[in-house]
Design a binder for these strands. Structure first.
Lengths: 247, 247
DNA sequence: GCCGATTTGTCCGTATGTATC
DNA sequence: CGATACATACGGACAAATCGG
């Protein structure tokens, strides 16, 4: 409902690029052309273009134009990862998804967990361990910690369905920012117990924090992925280079 | 040298956040306050703030303020990954870095390689295989493909030092966008030959394309990382959700 | 090499809408 | 309700890079 104009233009151009109306390597219409096409100000166009740049669809060239650098991929994602939720990925690939709750408890955050998760010491959190199945295969071992005060009424039954649906739809809380770190770790006995790792003796581990619309971190998650189905995508522009904290 | 004003403000605020002048969980001064502090327009402030949002330092809350969500990390990065170049990481951690060139050749891209790399069929590319050592330990096996026409005069000697220095400083070409995919793969015989994997039978693989200032993809790289020293960071806002191509 | 047209990059000022308190 | 704060949008100005004549 409250659609921003720049967002409509963004989506419109995004689709046009995906449908090859503007093809890889070509230049988009100039900003002035787009201004008349969409009947808006230059700022609005530039904002839409900035968004497309962030996701690696275009790259603007000073004095020349805006080049399309998006290539449709053949090996289209049959993999899990990136910023999508597990269910979104599953739905997109029309796969059957099942979640089993291994344990569900409430714990108080002590020093070590605080350091690992970023929660303040003494916080009360739900501690949930779950296994995610895709077409019957156990692929992901998830440990979720939710700040109890921000996700009241969470139950194991809800955790079997989708916690995010509950948070966003039932509680009306919006998720805005998430930070993640990807590492590769040895498989633990627990990993071997719940996942089918085949020949692999290690797995992809995605650790992350989630912030709500108030800028409060209310979740810490560690997802341990069977390597076969894991893939993570990212695009970076030169500016982002400085994003890492320097000791 | 020609520093943009929004970039100065961005850097200034970024440092202030890192130095805890604005601490985790608190609100920044309002936009209007910043306008008078920096003596600039609202647009300029907002652009700086947008940059800080992209790197996960802040999150703005409509009608309330801008919250700092950056937490200084203790376990500061002794790891390789992210968007930094290998040498940058090494320098930051004051480590000794050595690069050995395993092979250096010129090949013509055929169908399969074109599909994998994104280069057009028939392109002439340098094909370089290198091992990166950190403090004497072989940690990364790199395969770089460079479009020959765009990196003229590349030699094995240059590849032993830094190819990016050569490209950016000597050739004066700027690197702007890079796209990467992270996966976990079984260790190949070649991996085992050149890297010391210890107990691991798999490694972190970062595949990526690099675009220059003209929006031309001139490099494809696959880096195979010894898991112990690999770590990749990312922050995402809700909008980026749609960034992946849907089949 | 210069000049002018085109195009993107930066910056400013203003107005209006919407959410929070 | 009003004050404050962020979100969106418009329009204008000048700088800087590219390109063709």
């Amino acid at each position: 409902m409250p659609k921003a104009k720049y967002d409509e233009i963004y989506m419109d151009l995004k689709q046009a690029i995906e449908k090859n109306t503007y093809s890889y390597g070509s230049l988009l219409p100039s900003e002035n052309t787009l201004i008349t096409q969409y009947d808006c100000s230059r700022n609005t166009i530039r904002r839409a273009l900035a968004g497309l740049g962030e996701i690696g669809y275009i790259q603007s060239i000073h004095g020349k134009g805006v080049r399309v650098i998006f290539q449709p991929s053949e090996r289209a994602s049959f993999t899990v990862g990136g910023i999508e939720s597990f269910r979104e990925t599953a739905r997109r690939n029309r796969l059957n998804v099942v979640t089993k709750v291994i344990s569900f408890s409430i714990v108080t955050v002590e020093a070590q967990l605080a350091e690992e998760s970023g929660f303040p010491i003494g916080s009360e959190v739900y501690d949930i361990l779950r296994v995610r199945y895709l077409d019957g295969k156990p692929l992901i071992l998830d440990r979720n910690l939710f700040l109890k005060a921000f996700v009241p009424g969470l139950t194991a039954e809800i955790a079997e369905r989708s916690i995010y649906d509950y948070i966003e739809k039932d509680l009306g809380m919006q998720i805005v920012t998430s930070k993640r770190t990807i590492t590769v770790e040895h498989a633990s006995p627990q990993d071997k117990q719940f996942l089918v790792l085949g020949d692999y003796n290690c797995l992809a581990v995605v650790s992350g924090q989630t912030f709500n619309a108030d800028g409060v971190m209310f979740e810490y998650t560690q997802s341990r992925h069977q390597p076969d189905y894991f893939s993570f995508h990212d695009t970076a522009t030169r500016k982002k280079k400085e994003q890492f904290y320097e000791k």
